[in-house]
Design a protein around this nucleic acid. Structure first.
Lengths: 119, 119
DNA sequence: AGCGACACTTACAAAATTGTAAGCAAATGA
DNA sequence: TCATTTGCTTACAATTTTGTAAGTGTCGCT
């Protein structure tokens, strides 16, 4: 967890006030967040489906990043208690609003990445 | 410095191949990088000018982030050895090509940041 | 009742980033 | 020439992120 008393934390907050790009960056940065978002843009998925869709991610980190994304309101965890339950993760409208941003990042990457591959 | 033998490093590389947005993210993420880039978009600056333009940054971190940006070819360090010398930092063409990406990040931030301010 | 799959959580460790406080060499400026 | 500024670097510590391994509780099935 973050320490809200650290210089690091204060600096982050201050920067967010000065530079809204930095704020955006903070909600999408994290080793696997973008990948999770991209997968969820295609369709909503369950925890296990995400795990299989993203090779290399561990349970712990998947859970952490999902929680962070959920806290930032980018995705919704739908656990329908009425009909048994299988929690589903899907993008919130706010999450969907990130699509152009991510496309912009992708476009720059495909153009300028040394050795470029898919996506 | 990074350890090229860590799982963390391998995961990063693999992700870059799968997701070019993640690659882009890796070159712009870092506490102060965006701010540095934004300042340099306005005009080229010297080390000390950057230091004053970015309150809260320390010498060490400024130097580190400048070096990282330079290694990623986003900016040029112009030390004109002929005319005495005062090193100048300016965006490279590659750095300039990030402008639309950063604008995209800024736009999302200004729209969706809880309490919004300038930029 | 017992078993396995699923969706997590926990305790711990390694790695990576950021910050603190100095120091240091080259280039001014008086 | 000699103190001062400028542009860094170094040693060290705190913080933060990521990874490893194991465990927990609920559900459905048999």
């Amino acid at each position: 967890m973050r320490k809200t008393t650290s210089t690091n934390y204060e600096n982050e907050q201050t920067l967010h006030e000065f530079c809204s790009a930095a704020f955006t960056l903070s909600v999408i940065s994290g080793r696997w967040k973008l990948t999770i978002l991209v997968k969820l843009m295609e369709r909503e998925l369950r925890y296990g489906e995400l795990k299989h869709a993203i090779p290399g991610i561990t349970e712990r980190v998947l859970a952490l990043q999902l929680k962070a994304l959920e806290e930032d309101q980018l995705l919704l965890k739908i656990s329908d208690d009425t009909s048994g339950h299988l929690p589903m993760y899907s993008l919130s409208p706010l999450g969907r609003s990130l699509e152009p941003v991510i496309r912009s990042l992708s476009a720059w990457g495909t153009t300028h990445q040394p050795i470029q591959n898919c996506r």
